[in-house]
Structures are given as structure tokens and as C-alpha cells.
Simulated assay, not measured.
Amino acid sequence: MKRDIFSVLFFSLTTILYSQTSKKTGISRAHLQEFQKNLIINGETGGNVIVVSKNGEVVYKHIENSNKIGDKTITDQTLFPIWSMTKPITTVAALILKEKNLLDFDVPVSKYIPIFKNLMCKSKEGIVPCKNEIKIIDLITHLSGLSYYKDFMLDGMRAKSLEDLMDDIAEHPLEFEPGESYFYGLGHDVLGRVIEVVSGVSFQAFMQNYIFEPLEMNNTKFFLTSKEKELMLPLFVKNEEIEGFNETGITGINDIITYDMEFKVAYGSQGLISTPKDFSNFCSMLVNRGEFKNKRILSAQSISELIVRYADGPHSSDSDFLGVYNGLGVYVLDNPSLMDFKAPKGLFGHGGYQSTEFFIDPKNDIYGVFLNRSLTDYNHRFYFIKAVYDAFTNQPY
């Protein structure tokens, strides 16, 4: 009897506290926590983290640990490979140079990388000389025809520098004439080399000086010491043949990144390691139209350029994420009615190979960050965004 009374009192107190929290923040913590727990229970991720901000205030931040054998406990110091979420950061780096009138997006890449002057293209007639040159804008918007060819990661491991890697990339034919179609590829890696040539410093140094330091992204980097590598989350893998955790995160020829200090190539398309706090700072800058803590990183005009339409959807090869077009290196939600969720038109974002995601909602001053390290067949992008907007008690859209 006493236990029943205690249970009722505890439930009532919890309900009161939850109601107050929900009323204050406008978001149901219980809904998102249940979402995170179910990802683990259903074998979609290992431990995971979600951060949501609205109107400049973090309204939700929660770490859900899996407590499974082979996984690690996530803390504020845990490091996450963010893979293709590197691309929007590299895009911002290029926009910074554009604002300084040092980089024109409409000029050929060969102005900065001469070996890109005479590339070959795939065609119905076979491999032929390209009629068009790749422009800087094509690198950012995936209209260049550059692809992640079979040995790209091996070439990256062997390369002595980004400049060296460009020679390998230029040997492979483009998928089509530059500017004529959309194909998700390695354009941002070439863009990283362009940034080096234009700025006169290494790509890594430029990112550090103009993005990481001003945004206080103190733990975001391309390369790690052996001590720092101990903070990396293991990769959770689940498919028809295997389920478990992979300490190195390497599963084959297409994802060979060691992050060792000895590695020479800083990939502009997929090379960064980050943390929830660091990446939240990047998102804060985007949602605040280029400002972070009264520091101007980009102009509001440059931020608006991110959502200009350059190609129809789908984004990457994500055919399960409907109603989007491809902007300046990000997907942009154009027709939310095609999917069963409540996110608004104009939302934009990007994901990463190992199931990380972020989105920016300019209309409602919301951003969301989802970090984990998983390879499963789950549609993380759709369900993450849906979970966040379903959690708002006062729907913002």
C-alpha cells in the first residue's frame, strides 16, 4: 500500500515537473528521450546525442548511452566522426573567401589547379575530352561530375598532400559534362585545395583560423593524437551478416580514414571530427544569419545563398527523403507535404556517412544536431527531424 502511494506521488511530481519543463521550453523531453532509447533498443544506433535550440536557447540536450558491450559511455568530451557534415563547413570557408573578394565562384577550377584544365568525361561515345571546365560553383553544388571513384580513399592514404591528391583525382573521367547534371561526389575535397591556393595557407590552418577559433569549435579537427583517439565513439554496425561495435570505424575500402596525425590529407568533404557542443556552435552561427556571440563570420546574404536552388532532389542518393532540392552544398526542404512530418519549407541541412545529422530552420530559429556513429539501414534524417518537430508542444511551423 505504501509503495502504491509512493508511486502515485512520484508520478504526480514527475508529471508536474515535466509539465513545467515542457511549458518553459515548448518541447517534450519525454518524447525525444523515448526516441533516443528506441533507436538503441531497435538496433538502429549505439549511444547517441541530440541537441535542439530555439530562439537562441538550447531547449533540449540529452545523451542516451547504450551500455552495450563494445560501446563507450558518451560524455561531453566524446569525439564523433561527422563525415559529410564536413561539407557545409568547407562551403562556409569558401564563402568567407568569396566575401573577401578573393574567390569567384564562376571561374574555372583550373585557375587554381592547372591539372583540371583538360579533363576527360564519360559519354555515350565512351571517354572523351570534356567540352566544359569545372567551375568553383560546380564543386559546391555537386554539378562537377566528380565522383568517389573506387580507389579514392586509398589514393588519399597514399597522398603526401592535398595538392598531391589532386593529381590522382584528375586522372579519373567525370560522370558527365560539368554543370549539366547532379552527382553527389568529392567536389569539396577539390574545394579544400582551392582554398589552400587562394588563401596561401593549408586548408586545415584556414579552417582553424577563420571557422574553428571564432566559433569556439575547440575540439573539431582533422587529425587526432593517440590520446584523443581514445575519446572516439566506436562504430555500431548492423546488417544481415553482422551486428556489433567496430573500434576503428573502418569497414572496407570506402571508409579508410584513420585520423592519425601522420595522415597528410585534410578531406574537405568528409574528414572532420567534432563534438555536440562544437557543431552546435556552427549551427548557431547559421541560424543567426552568420553571427556567433556578436562576431560576424558570414554576411546574412551569404547565409541566404545556401538555400538557392541548383538542382532538383533527391539529395545525395537519399530517395527516401522527399520534397527537397539541392542548394549550395545542402539539401533544402521545399515540399514538406510529401513526407509525414511537420517541418517547415526552407529547412536545410546535411548528414554524414555514419548516421550523423543536422538541420537549420531559419523560419523558426531552430537547429537540431544528432550525433552517433552507426551504419544501419535506418532513415536517420527523416526520423530525427520528425521526432524533433513532433516533440514541440507549441508547434513552431
Rank of each mutant, 00 (worst) to 15 (best):
M120H: 12
L233P: 03
R289V: 04
H172G: 00
V51D: 11
L79T: 04
K229I: 08
S337F: 08
V194G: 03
G351K: 09
V237A: 07
Y184S: 05
K131I: 03
M217N: 05
V324Y: 06
K363D: 01
A93R: 02
L174P: 01
T78R: 08
I242H: 10
N394K: 14
N219A: 11
E177W: 13
Q204W: 14
G187N: 05
H142P: 10
K72Q: 11
A93I: 09
A300F: 10
T258Q: 11
K342H: 10
S7E: 04
A159R: 02
F370D: 01
I63A: 08
V265W: 02
L333Y: 05
G368Y: 02
M339A: 12
R296S: 10
V198S: 08
H31W: 06
F6G: 03
G352W: 06
T75E: 05
E213H: 10
P362D: 03
I307A: 12
D76A: 11
G70P: 12
P314L: 07
P129H: 03
L146T: 07
A266W: 04
E262T: 13
F80N: 04
I257W: 02
G351W: 03
Q301N: 13
T248P: 03
S202A: 10
P234I: 11
N372T: 15
S199Y: 15
S337E: 14
F359R: 02
E177G: 11
F11G: 13
H350R: 12
L298H: 09
G329I: 06
D168R: 07
P173L: 11
A343M: 06
L119Y: 11
T73I: 15
N132H: 10
N38G: 00
W83N: 13
Y383P: 06
F236C: 00
Q20D: 00
H172Q: 14
A387E: 04
E196I: 09
D71H: 04
K2Y: 07
R381C: 08
I250G: 02
Q208H: 12
E305R: 14
I195E: 03
F236E: 02
K150Y: 11
I211Q: 04
F11W: 06
Y310I: 01
A343L: 08
K238P: 00
V194I: 12
L224E: 06
V51N: 06
K54M: 03
V109W: 01
L79K: 03
P362F: 14
F370P: 01
A387P: 07
Q36W: 06
I69Q: 13
K122F: 00
G70K: 12
Q301S: 13
I96C: 07
I253H: 05
V197Q: 06
K98N: 09
I360R: 02
D320M: 11
Y331H: 12
Y353D: 10
I16P: 00
N132P: 05
K342Y: 08
E216P: 04
E230Q: 15
